[in-house]
Design a protein around this nucleic acid. Structure first.
Lengths: 343, 343
DNA sequence: CGGAGAAGTGGAAGCGCTTCCAGTTCAGCG
DNA sequence: CGCTGAACTGGAAGCGCTTCCACTTCTCCG
């Protein structure tokens, strides 16, 4: 039926051609010790001439190392993955993995079917390690992964517990920066749009913001939860605007939600930043291009991806890398300028 | 060093426990014929009790089917992958793959190192099939993939030639829709922002737009190339505004570039759509939320991903699926309304 | 009731690579 | 010049699963 796939040369053929044993050939290829210089070179030549590439399945079977890691993104929000945040993480992960010979398996584990596949993937040892992102609440994925006794790196802390390996951004610190900034520029009636309340990142950013305000002695007028999407942010802003007194500043736990908030504010004829200052979180490319450009807490998203991958590789190699908290800082733009806006 | 990974049960153990031969167990598990009902059930029970999951490496070695496909995104533009377009494609691919037991390997093949890895991946038959996206010019990736005599599905036609399997959107038709719409709403001084000139998609959209205008007897005042990014679009618009006479409509070959154009127009104090109508291409979520909301050619991006995956699965199974051109349509919003804007 | 063909059965041979183990070889030294 | 330990060598035993093949057992029909 299918065209016979032209068979690739095997290690045996290489060995034969080089006039050495298969053992020697294997050693030469993996440059292991105990091969004479001469044989090593003969093997190298044969490899080149035959265009030999080792068969990963066979290697995996023999070594119990499959040469792949999986990045699982778990989220119920269907649109969430569209957030460029993930793209950026993937770019980072991919960059780090490029230095190794590990492939990246991407798994969107939102649906029940997806979770099932994830479990199967773990149990069948189809990957040498796992990166987990965007876990909600007590998402079973985390436990599952750890039970599989594969190295697991968390991207962002899960709601409960502290895993052995994780990379996160300094969410609390970043949120405090946002609070400080708003207060310092004269805002006194701040509100916040947080994310799903069952995610650690939402909780932590809210805590940080609240703390920051408390230290400054400014009350938080209201909190509404979005779902980290633009739509969610717009809706949350709508609800916040219904409160009294009217807010003069809003901190959104993601840029996407901040952009949604901008939209709602515009709809209500409110000016940004004159009437309401807006601060987001993430600082991806799009934040620079909103109208007005968005003041936002910057976190090194690509680096986050890179570090996750690096940490995982370390763990796979048997080291015990330390968890990492990446720094955040404020990118001040026009939606919440340094100086108080004069209306 | 590393903790002994608790060994998973093997097929032999399952067979033993079920009191059948390994052959029978294998057949039962893959529900192949030639197994009696009784044995089949005995095996199923044993599998359940032991929590057996077949070892993919061993299966791959024996069957020459690895159970994975690769999605390779090739692009020199570093920021391009951040376009939600790709995320949406991935969601589609992932959804289609979820129905099968194929894993998705994601490969960002921008760097030379990435390309090298891609080639190695192909030659080592680490995947059963390939999906290729965002090829530039005479990108060698396409040929490489086809030479590996693995099924290859192209997402979007490559610049030259027509591959056996591909999924594309009706770019030409979509662009004509844009032209028609602008002309019908009274615009007479249109310009265009195209993509990299060495991509088929840019060329085709430009052709379509040009054709549409020609049929309507309206001249195209200018074309500038962006690079499918927001920045590129903004810069192109800048150049276009330098021309005489001033344009009253602009068609951008992607939403990202259209958004960039909006920004530039705003900077120049031009009103959209009163002074200049803007039409984009893609119609992802963000198009709905620009200011003003973007009129844009809609293409079913997620479906594109799904169809690519489905087509690839078909090809892997030995069928010969037909190439697919997905329909496009116009999403009319305020940046280019139906009726001529009165200034 | 005999025989043909379908269905069921399991031993054994791989799939392609790594690695243990039991030697060999060889340089260096007293 | 014999001896010792380090450095090579390669045969063979897996890694866990599929599948060919040679039988054996049913089923059903004339």
């Amino acid at each position: 039926m299918e065209p016979t796939p032209k068979r690739m040369p095997t290690l045996d053929e290489v060995a034969q051609r080089a006039g050495v044993s298969r053992t020697a050939a294997s050693r030469a290829i993996n440059n292991a010790p105990h091969v004479s210089r001469a044989k090593r070179e003969a093997v190298e030549r044969a490899v080149r001439e035959l265009g030999f590439v080792p068969n990963p399945s066979a290697q995996a079977l023999a070594t119990r190392r499959v040469g792949a890691v999986v990045l699982a993104v778990s989220s119920d929000e269907p649109g969430l993955f569209a957030d460029p945040f993930f793209a950026e993480v993937i770019v980072g992960v991919s960059a780090a993995l490029e230095q190794t010979d590990l492939e990246l398996i991407l798994l969107l584990a939102n649906s029940p079917r997806g979770r099932e596949r994830f479990e199967r993937l773990l149990r069948s040892r189809r990957a040498d390690g796992v990166m987990l992102m965007a876990l909600r609440g007590d998402d079973p994925l985390g436990r599952l992964a750890e039970e599989a006794d594969l190295p697991v790196v968390f991207g962002g802390l899960p709601l409960a517990g502290e895993p052995r390996w994780y990379v996160d951004a300094d969410n609390r610190g970043g949120a405090r920066l946002a609070a400080d900034h708003l207060v310092r520029s004269g805002r006194r009636r701040p509100v916040m749009i947080t994310g799903q309340v069952d995610t650690r990142v939402a909780v932590t950013r809210e805590q940080g913001f609240t703390e920051g305000l408390k230290l400054a002695g400014v009350p938080l007028l209201g909190v509404e939860a979005g779902d980290f999407t633009e739509e969610g942010g717009a809706a949350a802003m709508e609800r916040l605007l219904a409160g009294r007194p009217a807010p003069d500043a809003v901190f959104a736990a993601s840029d996407a939600m901040a952009i949604g908030a901008l939209r709602t504010l515009r709809l209500h004829g409110l000016r940004v930043p004159e009437d309401v200052a807006v601060v987001g979180f993430n600082d991806l490319a799009s934040a620079r291009h909103t109208n007005p450009p968005l003041t936002t807490v910057h976190q090194p998203v690509r680096a986050l991806g890179q570090e996750m991958a690096r940490m995982l590789v370390g763990a796979i190699e048997g080291h015990d890398p330390s968890p990492l908290i990446l720094p955040t800082r404020l990118s001040v733009r026009e939606s919440a300028p340094d100086v108080p806006a004069r209306a």
